[in-house]
Design a protein around this nucleic acid. Structure first.
Lengths: 121, 121
DNA sequence: TGTCAAGCTCGACGCATGTCGAAACCGGCT
DNA sequence: AGCCGGTTTCGACATGCGTCGAGCTTGACA
């Protein structure tokens, strides 16, 4: 029952220190299959900027109404990108009154950072 | 030819400590435009595994002939992915006799790691 | 209850991407 | 010179992705 895909995303979004730096040990296919989508989610300029605005937001959260006007694309496109970040496990959304607030999920981002970290000797 | 794209990739591939963690300061559009392609390059399971095999290779380099048999795709597909990693500035290739050896370029990967690093407070 | 604004979903369009097989290239070897 | 194995390039194909506009949902407020 150690199905790779089902549990992994949640595991990784948690505090589990899953993987050593890739410079020390190469990742197996299952891990690559789980982490690659997270990198892919950051692989668009708009999403990378969105992610950074959310991560750097004072108070740890930011309203969509503050994100949208910072870009040259339509609101529906921003919404689509936010959904991608949500489904990648990188952010969380919460509706309060008329507004929706996004906050970063540090778990997965930490995993990615650890993986890229140069030889933590 | 002060084309933005031309200099930035090289700059970032160097040792320049360009960006603070995104949890501390959001990235601007220009930086996102340069860094996002690197994340995108890591956003495919095959490429992520290739990158890790190269980064973790003993001696710092590894032959394509050792990479190819580790995957279920054809050699031309591996070659295509390696080209993507090369163009992203993540790896370097060198031909020696009949074989081509790849090695990791630590600069850019360090930048990405720094960007993802949780509040280095 | 009706209206309005914020945000999401849906369908569509064009371009990018992953994959393959075939062909070209590049060095060694006979 | 000619062959051969390793690697890259070239078309071609199906799928995925970023973007838009239109329409829908949700909650506030008069």
């Amino acid at each position: 029952m150690s199905k790779p895909a089902s549990l992994t995303l949640l595991d990784l979004a948690d505090e589990t220190p899953c993987c050593p730096p890739m410079a020390q040990q190469s990742v197996d296919a299952a891990t690559a299959g789980v982490l690659a989508p997270a990198f892919k989610a950051l692989g668009d300029p708009v999403r990378l900027q969105l992610m950074s605005m959310i991560a750097a937001a004072p108070g740890g959260e930011i309203c969509v109404c503050d994100l949208t006007p910072a870009f040259d694309v339509t609101g529906s496109t921003i919404s689509h990108h936010l959904k991608t970040l949500r489904e990648a496990g990188l952010v969380d959304a919460e509706r309060r009154a008329s507004w929706v607030y996004y906050r970063a999920r540090p778990g997965l981002m930490g995993q990615l950072a650890a993986l890229l970290t140069p030889n933590a000797a």
